[in-house]
Design a protein around this nucleic acid. Structure first.
Length: 576
RNA sequence: GCCCCCGUAGCUCAGUCGGAUAGAGCAGCUGCCUUCUAAGCAGACGGUCGCAGGUUCGAGUCCUGCCGGGGGCGCCA
C-alpha cells in the first residue's frame, strides 16, 4: 500500500494534477478545514506569482476532472477551494479499511533503522519523576515507529558506571551482601543510596575506601566486579518490575549501560586526538565544537578526559553514538532526554560529525521534553522537598483509578477490578504525559488526568468500552451480519472522515516525534463516535441494512481506538 | 554576560508549510436518561494570542527588540 491509498493521498494526487496545469509543481496546500471536509489554499499563494485573480485560479481547480464524481469542490472566500468527499467514496475507502489489520496505515515507504535511547535509570538509585517522561514518551515512539514499519532498536543507557560505585560497593560491604540484596530486591534503593552517601560525606575512612574501590573496579578486580554486578542485577530486577507495572516494552535485552563502552573510551579520545580535534585546557582534554559559547562568550569545551585521567559522560555518549552507527547501522538516533541536556547533546552531535563518526546520512535528534511540575507550577516534589518515587506515583494513580471506578466496577471480581484499575490508572498517567506538546513543562494533576471528561485516557477507554458493549449486545441479540457499509448521515460522514484520517495522524505524530498529535486525533475520533452514538441508533436502527452498517462503523472505530491506544502503550479495556 | 525552551479564555491545553469568524476540556450557566454504558450528548457564555515594531494581499504562526517564567553555561552524570 502506498501513499495514494490514503484518503488524503488520493485528494493530494488529484489536486496536484489540477495545480500542475496552472503552474507545474505548485503546492495545492491541502489543509484541514472548518468549513468543509478539507480545503485547498494553493490558489491564494499562486495568484501573486501568476499575476492572476485567486478566485479564477480556484475556480479552475474546483473544475478539475480528477475530482469529478467523488469530491465536490466549491470556491469560497478570497480563493479557498472547499472539498466535500462523496459518501459513496468514503464507503469504499472504509470497506478497504475493515479487513486491514493495519487500519489503512501504509508500511513505511523507506523503512529505516531507528535507535531510540530512553529511560536510563541509575543503578542503586530510585526511579523518580525524572524518569517518567523519558520512559513513557520513548516507549510510545518505539511502538509507533515499529508499527509504521521501521526497525526499532531500544536502548536503555543504564547509569551503571562512574565514581559513585566505589561508595556504593563499600556501603554494600559494610551492611553485608545479604542485607544489601534484600534491601535492593524490595526496591528500597533510596535508603541504600542515601546511607552510602551519608557515610561518604561523614567519614574520611569511608571516602578513602571508596576511592580505592573505584580504582579496583576500573582495574577489573574480580571480587569488586562481582560486587558491582550484584548491584546492577538487583537494580535491574527492580527496574524490570517498574517497567512491567508501567507497561513499557523495555527488557534486560535493551540494556546497554555506560559500562558497555568502557573499553571504547580510550579509543574515542585517541581518535579525536588523531583527527586533530583535541585541545588540552587546564589539564583536561577537550574538543571545542564551533558555535558553542559559555560564560563570557568563551568557546565551550566538551571535556572527554579529565585532568585526573578519568573519562566523562561526554566520552561515553560519543562512544555510544559511534556504536549506534557502526554496530546498529542506525539511520536515525533518537535521544528521549530532558530539555536541559540540549546543549550537551548538540555538542556531542557536532563533535561526532567533525570526527566522522556521525555521517551526514545519519540523523541524530534530541527528542526533548519539559519538566514535570506540581500544582504550584514548581518542580514536582514531595511536601518535604524530596523527589517523588516513580512507584509512589504509579500506586497513587492506580488507587485513584480504583476509587473513580467505584460502583461501576462492583460487578467485577477482585482480580478483574484490580486489573481494570491498573489499566485505567496507568493509562491515565501515560495519556496525560503524551497528550500535550512534549517540549513544554507539564503540570501533573491526578484529578485532571483521571477525569472521564475531556482529552484524557479514561475518556478514550470509555469510548472503546462502550463500543465493545454495543458489539456484545449485537451478537447476543440478533447476530450481526457483515452487511454493506453505508455512509449517509452527517454523523456517519464525520465519523468516516475521522476513521480514514488515522494514517495521516500517525504519520504526523512520527514526523516530529510528537505523540500528542496521535492523542489529539484519537480524541477527535472518540468525539465523532459519541456524537454518532447519540444521534444514530445502531441496534434500534430503522432497517437491518442500516443496523449492520452502523455496527461495522462501531467495530472499525473500536479497532482504531484500540490500535491507537496500543501505539501509545495504553490498554483498551472491553468493559469499564 | 551568552545561549536554549516557554508565554493563547479564570484553570489545563490544541492550533501541522503563514490562510476564512483563534479551537477543545474543566469550572460556572441552559437543556437532554421508559430507549444501544448519562463516566455521555447538545447549546450559550468566556480572547488585545505577554508587549512594541517589521515582512506580507493575509501573522497566534516568520523577523527584530523588550517584558515575564523556567533551564543551561570546564573537569558530577
Amino acid at each position: 500500500m502506498g501513499a495514494m491509498t490514503t484518503t488524503r493521498g488520493r485528494l493530494q494526487v488529484a489536486l496536484q494534477a489540477a495545480f500542475d496545469r496552472l503552474a507545474p509543481g505548485a503546492d495545492p496546500v491541502l489543509r484541514p478545514s472548518e468549513h468543509a471536509d478539507l480545503q485547498s489554499n494553493g490558489a491564494l499563494a499562486l495568484a501573486r506569482t501568476l499575476g492572476r485573480s485567486p478566485r479564477d485560479l480556484a475556480t479552475e481547480v474546483a473544475a478539475a476532472p480528477e475530482l469529478a464524481g467523488w469530491c465536490r469542490a466549491e470556491v469560497s472566500g478570497p480563493g479557498f477551494v472547499n472539498l466535500h468527499l462523496a459518501d459513496h467514496f468514503l464507503t469504499g475507502q472504509l470497506d478497504r479499511l475493515s479487513g486491514d489489520p493495519r487500519l489503512g496505515v501504509p508500511a513505511a515507504a523507506e523503512p529505516a533503522t531507528y535507535v531510540v535511547d530512553y529511560s536510563a535509570p541509575n543503578v542503586a538509585k530510585e526511579m523518580h519523576v525524572g524518569h517518567l517522561r523519558t520512559t513513557i514518551i520513548g516507549d510510545a515512539l518505539c511502538r509507533m515507529l515499529a508499527f509504521a514499519g521501521h526497525d526499532v532498536r531500544r536502548e536503555n543507557h543504564l547509569g551503571d558506571w562512574g565514581t559513585p560505585f566505589g561508595m556504593l560497593i563499600e556501603h554494600l560491604l559494610e551492611i553485608g551482601e545479604q542485607e544489601a540484596v534484600e534491601e535492593l530486591s524490595v526496591g528500597d534503593l533510596d535508603t541504600f543510596y542515601r546511607q552510602a552517601r551519608a557515610s561518604f560525606e561523614a567519614r574520611a575512612d569511608f571516602r578513602e575506601a571508596s576511592r580505592r574501590r573505584v580504582v579496583l573496579l576500573q582495574q577489573g578486580d574480580e571480587e569488586t566486579r562481582r560486587l558491582w554486578s550484584v548491584l546492577v542485577a538487583e537494580s535491574l530486577a527492580y527496574f524490570d518490575d517498574v517497567y512491567t507495572r508501567l507497561g513499557v516494552l523495555l527488557t534486560d535485552d535493551d540494556v546497554v549501560g555506560e559500562s558497555f563502552y568502557n573499553d571504547a573510551l580510550a579509543g574515542v579520545v585517541a581518535d579525536l586526538d588523531a583527527a586533530g580535534l583535541l585541545v588540552e585546557s587546564d589539564g583536561a582534554r577537550c574538543v571545542f565544537p564551533p558555535g558553542f559559547a559559555g560564560r563570557d562568550g568563551e568557546p565551550l569545551p566538551l571535556i572527554v578526559q579529565k585532568s585526573d585521567g578519568g573519562y566523562t559522560y561526554a566520552t561515553t555518549d560519543l562512544a555510544a553514538l559511534r556504536d549506534r552507527v557502526d554496530r546498529h547501522h542506525a539511520d536515525r538516533i533518537l535521544y528521549v532526554v530532558g530539555a536541559p541536556q540540549h546543549q550537551h547533546l548538540e555538542m556531542c552531535f557536532a563533535v561526532a560529525r567533525s570526527a566522522g563518526w556521525l555521517p551526514a546520512s545519519v540523523e541524530a535528534t534530541h527528542v526533548a521534553f519539559g519538566s514535570v511540575l506540581g500544582a504550584d507550577h514548581k518542580m514536582f516534589k514531595t511536601r518535604s522537598g524530596d523527589t517523588v518515587k516513580l512507584v509512589t506515583l504509579l500506586d497513587e494513580a492506580v488507587a485513584r483509578a480504583r476509587l473513580a471506578l467505584g460502583e461501576r466496577a462492583a460487578h467485577l471480581d477482585e482480580a478483574d477490578r484490580h486489573a481494570l484499575a491498573g489499566t485505567v490508572g496507568i493509562g491515565a498517567l501515560k495519556y496525560a504525559d503524551l497528550s500535550t506538546d512534549r517540549t513544554r513543562d507539564y503540570v501533573f494533576d491526578f484529578d485532571r488526568m483521571l477525569a472521564f471528561e475531556g482529552n484524557t485516557g479514561p475518556y478514550l477507554q470509555y469510548a472503546h468500552a462502550r463500543i465493545c458493549s454495543l458489539l456484545r449486545r449485537a451478537h447476543t441479540d440478533a447476530g450481526a451480519r457483515p452487511g454493506a457499509l453505508q455512509v449517509a448521515t452527517p454523523e456517519e460522514h464525520h465519523l468516516a472522515l475521522a476513521l480514514l484520517a488515522f494514517p495521516e495522524a500517525l504519520d504526523g505524530a512520527l514526523g516530529d516525534a510528537a505523540p500528542h498529535r496521535l492523542c489529539q486525533h484519537l480524541y477527535e475520533l472518540a468525539g465523532a463516535f459519541t456524537t454518532f452514538y447519540e444521534r444514530c441508533p445502531v441496534l434500534r436502527a430503522d432497517d437491518p441494512a442500516t443496523r449492520d452498517s452502523r455496527l461495522r462503523l462501531a467495530e472499525l472505530t473500536g479497532a482504531v481506538l484500540a490500535c491507537g491506544l496500543g501505539l501509545l502503550g495504553i490498554g483498551a479495556p472491553e468493559r469499564m
